[in-house]
Design a protein around this nucleic acid. Structure first.
Length: 586
DNA sequence: GCCGTTTTCGGCCCGACTGTTTTCAGTCG
C-alpha cells in the first residue's frame, strides 16, 4: 500500500500533466509538479495534517492544501476529475513516448481522437498524421521509434552496471585527442540507485575529436543526436548516454549543471537570479554587464551563490539549499569512515568463500573489525546446526586478532537470523546470548498484511539479542517491491529498543532506500551499512551503501559501523550484560 | 498557483537539438 503522501504526489503529478496537455497555464502545471515533489518527500503523513500544517509544506499554499483535504475527505479532487473527464488516460500515456510531449499529444487527440499508444501507431501506418500541422515524415519516424523504445522499456539500470560502463567510457574519452578533463556526472554522480541515462562531461578546445571518439565506441548502437557541444547515443543494451563538451574554463559550472538534479539546478539558478546573476553550464554571469563571475570549479560557483560546496549525493532539492545557506549541511559519512562490515557470509551457509578468505579480504580493506553472520537453522536449505555454528565460532576466536593492520582486526561472531511470520527467530535467547551480534531479516512470507508484517518486525526489534534489522524492506530493485509495513512504527521501535537498521549495500537491494533513511533518522535511529557479502568481491559493494547513506544525509555518528569498537560493543549489548562481558574479557 | 533581502503583484531556470516554421515551437534534461 502506498504511503498517503505518495498517493497525493501521484495525483498532483497527474494533474500537472493534464494541465499541460489541455494547454493550461504552464506555471500552474509547474507549481503542481513542485508540490508533488514536496509532498512526496515530506516527513509527516499528509493525511493527518490540517490546512495550517499542510501549508507548512514547501510549495503548498491554500488552494493545494484544500485539495489535499478534499482528497482525504472524499477520495477524489473535483478539479482533477474535471480534467480527467476531458482527457482520456491514454492521452497522458502518449507523453511517455520519447520526443512526444503534451503539445503534440493534445493535438493528436483533438484533431484525430487518438487516445492510446496503439491507436497512434495505427494512425501513423495509415498516414493519417500527414496533414497535421507540425508533423512531418521525420516526426512520424521518431514517434514510431519512440514507441518501440517504450515497449522494449528502456528500463533504468542498476547503479553498478551503469558505473562500470561509465568508468569505461570516461577512460576511453580521456585518451581522445584534445581531451583536457572527463568525468561522469548526472544521477550516477549523485549515486542514485538506478540510472536512466549516463551523462559524461568533458572539456576541450575543439570538441570534434571527442565527439567522433564517442560515436565510434564499440557498444554504440545508435547516434540519437549529434551537435558541436552535445552528442547523444544509445548503447547496444538500450542505455542512453550523453556527452557534453565545454571549454576548459567552464569545467566547474558544467559539472555543477550536469550533475543536477533538475530540481536542485532550478533552485540554484533561481538563487542566481536573486543575486542578479545568471547560471548556465558555461558559468555564473552578471546579468547587467555580462561579466563572468565564476566557472572554473564547483566550489567557486556555489561560493558566489553564498553556498558551501554541496556534495552531489545531496543535490535533490530536499533541503540542501536551505541547509547550505544556514551553514548546516551535514558532514556526510564517507567510505573511509567505515571501520567494519557487520553482515557477511561464508561457505558454511550460502557464501562462496571460506571463512579464512573472507577474513583476509576484509583485512585487506583495512577494517578495524569484521563480523561473520551466517544464516541460522530456520533457513533449512543451509543445514545449519548448533554444532556447526559453535565450531565456526571457535575458529573465529582463533583468527581474532591475527589479521589486518598490526594484526589488530577484531572479529565478531554473529548470525543472520530469520524473522518468522510471528516475529520469532531461529534460536532461543540462551543460545543467542553467545553471539557478539545478530542481524535479523525477513526472508519469506513477504505478503503478510500490513499490520502482521509491522508487528512481526517490531517484535524482532524487541528481541534483546537482535541488533540490526537486515535489508529491512526486502525489496529487490526492479523485481520485488518492499514489504507492506508501517515503516514509521518500525523506525520508532528501532529507536526505542536500540536496534539498528541496515543499509544493505548490495546494488540489487540498497535497502533501506534513501527516502526511508531520511524519515528514519528523524526518529533517532542508528544505521549499519553492510555489504551482505557472499563472496570476497562483494565486500567492495560497501561504496554503494555509503552513497545511499549519504543520500539519506547520514554522518558517521549515525553509523554504528563507523564507531570505534568499544562504542559499537556497547551498542550491541542493548543494555543487557551478556555481550559486554565477553568484550571486556577479550 | 506559489512566493517575497528588488515584489502581497508580477514574476516564475537555462540552453541544446530537432524538425519543419522561412523565424521558431516543442521536447528534453
Amino acid at each position: 500500500m502506498a504511503r498517503s503522501n505518495d498517493e497525493v504526489a501521484a495525483l498532483f503529478r497527474e494533474y500537472a500533466d493534464l494541465i499541460s496537455i489541455t494547454g493550461g497555464d504552464a506555471y500552474r502545471a509547474r507549481v503542481y509538479e513542485k508540490a508533488a515533489r514536496s509532498v512526496g518527500g515530506y516527513h509527516a503523513d499528509v493525511a493527518r495534517l490540517d490546512v495550517k500544517g499542510l501549508q507548512e509544506i514547501p510549495n503548498v499554499g491554500k488552494s493545494i492544501a484544500e485539495k489535499i483535504l478534499e482528497y482525504f475527505r472524499s477520495g477524489s479532487v473535483s478539479a482533477v476529475d474535471e480534467l480527467r473527464a476531458r482527457i482520456p488516460a491514454g492521452v497522458r500515456r502518449l507523453t511517455a513516448i520519447p520526443t512526444l510531449g503534451p503539445k503534440k499529444a493534445c493535438l493528436l487527440y483533438e484533431e484525430l481522437g487518438i487516445s492510446s499508444v496503439e491507436e497512434l501507431a495505427d494512425a501513423i501506418h495509415e498516414e493519417r498524421l500527414r496533414d497535421l500541422k507540425g508533423f512531418g515524415p521525420k516526426t512520424e519516424q521518431n514517434i514510431l521509434h519512440g514507441i518501440e523504445l517504450l515497449q522494449s522499456s528502456g528500463d533504468r539500470v542498476l547503479l553498478d552496471v551503469a558505473l562500470d560502463l561509465a568508468d569505461d567510457m570516461v577512460a576511453a574519452l580521456s585518451r581522445a585527442t584534445g581531451c583536457r578533463r572527463c568525468a561522469y556526472a548526472g544521477s550516477l554522480r549523485r549515486v542514485r540507485e538506478t540510472v536512466g541515462d549516463i551523462d559524461i562531461l568533458a572539456t576541450a578546445e575543439d570538441s570534434a575529436p571527442l565527439m567522433r571518439a564517442f560515436s565510434e565506441l564499440p557498444y554504440v548502437a545508435e547516434v540519437v543526436a549529434r551537435g558541436e557541444t552535445k552528442t547523444s547515443i544509445r548503447t547496444t543494451k538500450g542505455l542512453a548516454v550523453d556527452l557534453r563538451v565545454v571549454p576548459p574554463d567552464s569545467w566547474g559550472a558544467a559539472l555543477q549543471y550536469f550533475t543536477g538534479s533538475k530540481a536542485h539546478n532550478i533552485r540554484t539558478r533561481e538563487l542566481a537570479v536573486h543575486h542578479g546573476l545568471k547560471l548556465s553550464e558555461y558559468g555564473l554571469f552578471d546579468i547587467e554587464s555580462g561579466e563572468k563571475i565564476a566557472s572554473e570549479t564547483e566550489e567557486d560557483v556555489y561560493a558566489r551563490l553564498s553556498l558551501p560546496w554541496i556534495p552531489p549525493t545531496l543535490r535533490e532539492d530536499r533541503g540542501e539549499i536551505e541547509a547550505g545557506l544556514r551553514g548546516e549541511l551535514p558532514d556526510l559519512a564517507v567510505e573511509s569512515d567505515i571501520r567494519g562490515d557487520l553482515h557477511t557470509h561464508t561457505d558454511l551457509t550460502d557464501g562462496l568463500a571460506p571463512l579464512e578468505e573472507m577474513v583476509a579480504a576484509a583485512a585487506e580493506r583495512g577494517y578495524a573489525y569484521y563480523a561473520i553472520t551466517d544464516h541460522g537453522p530456520d533457513m533449512a536449505m543451509q543445514r545449519m546446526t548448533d554444532e556447526r555454528m559453535l565450531a565456526q565460532r571457535a575458529r573465529v576466536r582463533e583468527l581474532d586478532g591475527t589479521c589486518g593492520r598490526g594484526r589488530g582486526m577484531r572479529l565478531l561472531h554473529g548470525a543472520e537470523l530469520n524473522i518468522d511470520p510471528d516475529g520469532g527467530v531461529d534460536w532461543p535467547e540462551e543460545f543467542l546470548a553467545g553471539f557478539d551480534l545478530c542481524v535479523a531479516s525477513v526472508h519469506s512470507h513477504f505478503n503478510q498484511g500490513r499490520e502482521a508484517m509491522t508487528r512481526r518486525i517490531v517484535r524482532a526489534c524487541e528481541n534483546p539479542y537482535v541488533n540490526i534489522i537486515g535489508h529491512p524492506t526486502t525489496r529487490i530493485i526492479g523485481k520485488r517491491p518492499g514489504v507492506d509495513a508501517d515503516l514509521d512504527a518500525i523506525f520508532a521501535a528501532c529507536a526505542r529498543t536500540g536496534t539498528a537498521l541496515e543499509i544493505n549495500a548490495h546494488p540489487d537491494r540498497l535497502d533501506l532506500r534513501d527516502e526511508d533513511i531520511l524519515r528514519a533518522r528523524r526518529y533517532g535511529v542508528k544505521f549499519a551499512v553492510d555489504s551482505d557479502a557472499h563472496a570476497t568481491l562483494h565486500l567492495a559493494n560497501m561504496r554503494y551503501g555509503v552513497g545511499t547513506a549519504q543520500r539519506g544525509w547520514l554522518t558517521k555518528a549515525d553509523l554504528i559501523n563507523a564507531w570505534p569498537e568499544t562504542r559499537l560493543r556497547r551498542f550491541l549489548s542493548k543494555g543487557h550484560k551478556g555481550r559486554v562481558t565477553r568484550r571486556s574479557a577479550a
